[in-house]
Design a protein around this nucleic acid. Sequence first.
DNA 1: CATGAATGAGAATTCATTCAT
DNA 2: AATGAATGAATTCTCATTCAT
Lengths: 214, 214, 214, 214
Amino acid sequence: MEYNTKQIQIIEVAERLFADKGFAGTSVRDIAQEANVNVSMISYYFGSKEKLIEALFAMRMGESRSRMETLLSNEDLIPIQKINILIDSAIDRLMGNQCFHNIMMREQLSSERTPTISEHIRTLKMRNIQLMQKLIEEGQAQGAFRKNIDLSLMTTTLYGTINYAIATQEFYKRINGLEDMEEAEFQTHLRRKLSQHLKSLFKSTVTNEHHNQD
Amino acid sequence: MEYNTKQIQIIEVAERLFADKGFAGTSVRDIAQEANVNVSMISYYFGSKEKLIEALFAMRMGESRSRMETLLSNEDLIPIQKINILIDSAIDRLMGNQCFHNIMMREQLSSERTPTISEHIRTLKMRNIQLMQKLIEEGQAQGAFRKNIDLSLMTTTLYGTINYAIATQEFYKRINGLEDMEEAEFQTHLRRKLSQHLKSLFKSTVTNEHHNQD
Amino acid sequence: MEYNTKQIQIIEVAERLFADKGFAGTSVRDIAQEANVNVSMISYYFGSKEKLIEALFAMRMGESRSRMETLLSNEDLIPIQKINILIDSAIDRLMGNQCFHNIMMREQLSSERTPTISEHIRTLKMRNIQLMQKLIEEGQAQGAFRKNIDLSLMTTTLYGTINYAIATQEFYKRINGLEDMEEAEFQTHLRRKLSQHLKSLFKSTVTNEHHNQD
Amino acid sequence: MEYNTKQIQIIEVAERLFADKGFAGTSVRDIAQEANVNVSMISYYFGSKEKLIEALFAMRMGESRSRMETLLSNEDLIPIQKINILIDSAIDRLMGNQCFHNIMMREQLSSERTPTISEHIRTLKMRNIQLMQKLIEEGQAQGAFRKNIDLSLMTTTLYGTINYAIATQEFYKRINGLEDMEEAEFQTHLRRKLSQHLKSLFKSTVTNEHHNQD
DNA sequence: CATGAATGAGAATTCATTCAT
DNA sequence: AATGAATGAATTCTCATTCAT
C-alpha cells in the first residue's frame, strides 16, 4: 500500500497524537486540525479512524527491517559483539520512533486489539525473538554463552528496559538532575547510558565467564 | 478517604475496564453497567470520571507499603538476599495488581496526566528507587557489590522487565507453548520464571565477582 | 401560612439566588448548600422548587401593606405631598427588597408564569395603580392636578424608572464616577437621587401649573 | 460575522425562547425543535449555547445604529423636537424588538453576565446616554432647557418606562379594557400612548418654562 | 477527486425528586 | 420530623461518519 503526501501527513500527525493521548483519547477532529486537512478526509482516505491506525502500523512496519540482518551475518564478529549490535539496534529503533513504540506499547496493554494490529505486533515480536535466538544459539554453539538462558525473558528485559526508560524519561531527567540539558543532547545521553547498561547486563548474564548459576 | 462497599465495587470495575480499554476508551456507562449501578452514581460518588480514577489511585496507593521495609532492615540478610527480596516483592506487587499497574503504565505513556495522579506515580517511583539505592549502597559498603552501578537504569530494568512481561504474557504463552496451561498455574509459572531471571540478572550484574567492566 | 426558622432561611437564600441567577438558573442544590440544609429539605418543606418560589411570593406579599394607607388618609397633606409620599414609599419598597423585586421583574418578563405568582403580581400592581388613582383623583378634585393624566403610564414610569435604576445601578455608578463609594452610602445616594428625580418629574407633569398640553 | 439562513433561523427562534423562558430556562433541544434543526446543529454552528446568545447579541447590535444620528444632526429642529425624535426612536427600537430587549433586560437583572454580552450592553447604554447628553446640552446652550437635569436618571426614566410598559402590557390591556383589541392594533395604540406620555413628561421636565425646582 | 454541511448516537454530568429509615 | 442515599430524566456537547455536490 502506497500513501500520498497528504495521507502520510495525516498518519504522522495521528501517530504523534495517538502517542500523546491514546487512540480513544484522540478525536479525528484533533488529527484533521493539526494536519490542516478537512475532517472528512480521514474517512475518505482511510475509511475510518480504526483503519487509520492500521495504516499507521502498515506504514511503520514496512519500513524497518533488513539493514540489521546483513550486519549480523558478518562472520568476523564474535557472539557478544553481535549481541551488542542487536542492543544498539533495538535502542535506535525504539528511541528513534518513540511515538510509534509508545502506541505499540499501549496496544499491548489493551485487550481490545484490532486483529490486523495484533498480527503486526506478533510478527514484529516474533522477528525480534528469533533474531535473539539465532545470536544466542550461535554463541552457545561457539561455547561463548552459557547454556541455560531464558530466551523470551532476555528479550523481555531488552525491550522492557528500553520501553520503560522511554516512558519514564522525564523522571529519569529529574532523578539525575538533567532537567536543563538540551533535549537532543539528553536523547543522546540516554541512548548511550542505555547502551552501556544493557550491554553490561547482557555480557554478565549470557557469557560463560565465571558465571555461577543460582 | 474511606470508601463504602458500593464505591469500592465501582472502583474495582473501573480499574479493570481502564486497564482493558484505557481511561478515554472506557465510558462511565460501561462502568456503571458492569458494576450494576446507576450511571449517575459515578458522578454522585466521585464527582466525575476524572475524580474516579484519582480515587482509584488514592485507594491503591494507600494499600501497599511497609511490609517490605521491615524485611529489609533484617541484619541477618546479606546484600544479594535483600536484592532478591526486593525483586520478589516487585514481582508480587506488579503481578498481583496487574490491572492497576497496567493503568499506571498507561498514565506514564501519556502526556495528559492529571497532576494528582502524576504526583502519586512520582511518589511511588521515588520510593522504589530509594529502596533500591539503599540496598545497593549497603552492598557496596560491604564490598559485595561493584561500584559503578547505574541505579536508575537497574530500577528501570527491574520494573521494565516485569511490566513488559505482564503486557506480553499472551505472547509469552504462545512462544513457550503454554496456551493450555490453567490461568492460575500460568501466573505462578510466570512469577517463578521472572524471579529466577531477574535474580540471575541482578546477581551477575551487581555482584563484584570477577566482573570486568567494558 | 406560617414558616418556621429553617423554612424562612431557605426562602431567603432562594430569594437571593433567584434574583442573581434566575429561577431556572438556580438549582435546589445551590439553595440547599447556601442555606446549609439537606437537598431533600426543599421538597420536604415546600413540595417542589416551583412551590418554593410560590412560598417566597406568599411570604413577601404578606409583609408590606398597610403602613402607607394610613399615611395617605391624613387630611392635612396636600395632593402633591401625598404623591411624594407615594414615590418615596415605592422607592423604599423596591430598593429595600431589591432581590424580591428583581424576581418579580423577571416573572413579568416571562410567559411561563405560575398562576399563583401571576395572581400575586396582578394583585400588587392593582393595589399600586389604585392607590395612584386615588391620589390623582383627589388632586384633580381639588384642582391641583391637571385633568388628562395617563394613570397607568404614570404608574409605569414610577415603577419602571425605579426598577430600571436598580437593574442598572452598576452602570449608574460607573457613569457618575461613584465606583469607590461605600455600598451602603451609594444605596442612600441613589435613593435620594431617585426621590428628587421622580418628585420633580411628577410635579412638573401632574400639577396644573402653566402646563400646556401637546 | 455573517450568518447563513439556517443560522439566522436558529438565532431568531432562540431569541423568542430566551425572551419567553430565559436563557437557563430554554434548552438547546427546545430551540432545535422549534427551529426544525438537529440538536447538534447549535453546537455545530455556534459552538455552544453560550456562544449562541452571544451571536444573537452580535447580530442585533450590528443592526440598529446610524439612521437616527443623521436625523438629529438636522439643524432646523429645535431642541424639544430632537428630544421627541429620540423618544420615538427609543419606543420604535424597543417595541420593534421586544424579544431582544426582554433578553437584554434579563441580562441586566443577572449577576452572571457573559463578558461579551456585558460589553455589548454597556456599549449600547453608553451610546444611548451620550445621545441624550448631546441633545440636552444643545437645549441648555440655546437656553431652551433648564440647567439641573439629571442626565442618567432621565435616560433611566425613558428606557425604564418603555421596558416596563412592554413587560406589563398584558396588565395594561386589562386595566384599560383593551383585551379584545387586535394585537397589531394594540401595539400601535401602546406606542402612541407611550409616545404622548413620554413627550409630555420630558417636555414638562426639561424645558425651562415656568419650572420651579423643589 | 475532494470537501463543507449535516447528523444521530453517545459522551459526561446535573437535575429535582423520591424513598427507606 | 428529618435526612442521606439513590435515581431516572434531561442537560449540553462531542463524536465518527455520511452525504450531496
